[in-house]
Structures are given as structure tokens and as C-alpha cells.
Simulated assay, not measured.
Amino acid sequence: MNVIETRELRKEFSVRVRRGLLRRERRTVAAVDGVDLTVQRGELLGYLGPNGAGKSTTLKMLTGVLHPSGGRVTVCGLTPVPQRIQLARRIGVVFGQRSQLWWDLPLRDSFELLRHIYRVPGGEHAARLRRCRDLLDLDEFLDTPVRQLSLGQRMRGELTAALLHGPQILFLDEPTIGLDVVSKQAVRGFLAELGERGDTTIVLTTHDLADIERLCRRIVVIDHGRVVHDGGIDALHARYGSQRRVVVDFDVAPAAPPVLPGVHLESATGPRLVFTLDGSASVGTLVSALTALGGLRDLSVAEPEIEEVIARLYRH
């Protein structure tokens, strides 16, 4: 079942541009320019793009905050803006720079207020809260006012608040921004377990590519309002020419390194050789050729970093 469907989704804004000393001209800018997107129930989707690409604008249209300028969008079978109240009961939203918690109340009281706002039965609320307390280690600060929480503690509270009414879809916009290493690990571990259960669809936008590697099987990349990639991380590597690196140490430097299609000798420093392999080359073939030379002492294969691949995509 598709829980999100968009066809030719557009959002345009009117901006005023300076023309001369006193004159300004109105211009239309397409923040989202014809996005086609289908997300199935239970998917954990990474939605990426550089600043200003249209990520947050897309999420705001999917959640009913912004009205599309054109195209069609349905979320959980509903049209977000005219059916915003019904949709709010089926989605959870966490924006890294926005809070749905009450600043001066203890965290526990914020959760109780949200239970009444969403009209969640007491038993369901207690069961979901107990699960979040266990997975996110909330107990030590449940009775602390939100204003006294650290950023990592507050983000764990925001995730819990977004899930207590049992949403079908969870929208996350930069959920780990500014968090320390321990808090990031806690949030990632929680989202990974939530994704494995398969009963909640997760749409994640982030600039922290470690979140994407850890959590997402499918990645959609948007740039200048258009989708430029939709697929897995492996497809991304293949499409944008990722290069694996093979580092080899010999007892004695070989007189003639092997020459193979798709394999390039990057450097040779004494008995250490470093090769780069494009998508057409096989590591196994290279290892066989190196072993045949004799005196092979050590070998390591470094897979390309996703940061390198995404940077190449943006430049492209």
C-alpha cells in the first residue's frame, strides 16, 4: 500500500529582486518543481539535497503546512491541506528547530497533554510511552521541565511525543542536528528498531550522511526542486562512479605492478601500492594478480565514503 503519492508536485514563491538603486522586481521561484514520489507502508526513506533544494518545502506540503502550487499529493489517502485535521492524527512530525513540548512543564506532563489532544486511550498511551522510555532512556529526566533538558534529551522527548498517538508516518527533518555522539547513537538505534518493525513509515531529511548509511535502504535526492536520484546506496555508488581503494603491502616492492582494465595505480611508496578501482573492475581479479607476484604481506579494501558520492552527485 502506498502511503505517500505525489505527481508533478510544485511549490512556487514570489520574491522581490532589486533592480537598480530604488526599483524592485517581482520574480517567481520554483522551490519544488515537478516531484513524483511514491512511498510504501513501512519504508524508511532518506530524502536528501543541498540547502535550498526543496526538502523542507516538500515535507511541509506533505504535512499540510503549505498548499501546493500545482500537481497532486495524497498522504494516507488524504489530501493534506483540506483534510489537515484528519491527517494530523495519522502522522508524526519532528522538526529539529521546532518543539511540540511545553517549555515550562515536566516532560511527563507534556506527554499527558498530548494524550488528551489526540484523544488516545489511556492503555495505548501507557504502552507506547513505556516502550519509548525503555528504548530512549527517558526515566532519568521525565520529571524535568523541558527548558532544563539538554538538546539530546529534548530530541528524545520530541521523538516520543511524535509517536504517542500511533502515527502511520513519521516525518523527521534534521532529527540529529547538534546532538553529541551518544545522543545520536541513541536516536539512530531507536529509529532503526522502529524501521525494522515495519508498522511506521519514516521519511528522514538530514545532512548527516551517517544517519542515511545507518538507517535507509532507499534514498531520494532532490536538487533545484527536482528528483535527481531515487534508489539504494549501491545504485548511487554505481551511477556516480564511486571508486574503491585497495592498499597493498609487499615484503619487497614489485618490479612491475599488474595492469588491469578499470584498475589505476594511485601511488607507489616503497613496498606499499595503492590502487583505485572503477565500477568495471573486480577486486578479486586484482587480488589474484597481486598474489601471483609473490611476497604479498597485507591487503585492505576501502569502500567509498557516501559523503564523497553525494558531493560528486551535487557537483554533477
Rank of each mutant, 00 (worst) to 15 (best):
R218E: 11
V203K: 06
D173T: 12
D173V: 07
G195Q: 13
V187P: 02
L172A: 02
T206C: 03
V220D: 14
V221E: 13
P175A: 09
F190I: 00
R214K: 14
V220F: 03
T200V: 14
C216A: 04
L194F: 08
L215P: 07
T206H: 02
I212E: 07
G198Q: 04
E213N: 07
G225W: 00
V227M: 06
Q185T: 10
G189C: 09
E213M: 04
I219C: 13
R197V: 15
T205R: 05
T206P: 05
I219Y: 01
R218A: 05
S183H: 04
C216M: 03
I212S: 07
A192I: 13
S183N: 10
V228L: 15
L209C: 10
R188E: 13
R197S: 13
L194Y: 03
R214A: 10
T200A: 00
E174S: 06
H207S: 13
C216T: 01
L172N: 12
E196W: 10
R197M: 08
L179H: 01
D180S: 14
D173L: 09
E196M: 12
V181A: 09
V221M: 15
V203R: 10
L204A: 02
R214I: 03
R214L: 06
L172T: 08
D211V: 04
R217Q: 15
G225S: 08
V182W: 07
D180Q: 12
V228I: 15
I219T: 14
L215V: 10
L172V: 06
D180V: 07
V182C: 02
I222C: 15
V221S: 13
Q185G: 13
C216W: 00
V181K: 02
L172C: 06
V182G: 13
P175I: 08
T176V: 11
P175G: 08
D199G: 04
I212N: 07
E174N: 11
C216V: 03
L191R: 00
E174W: 04
G178I: 00
E174R: 03
R218Y: 01
L172M: 08
C216S: 08
R226A: 09
G198I: 01
V220R: 05
R188P: 07
D223C: 11
I177L: 15
G189S: 10
V227Q: 06
L172G: 05
E196C: 05
R214D: 05
E213R: 09
I212L: 13
C216D: 07
V228H: 06
D199C: 12
V228E: 06
A186G: 08
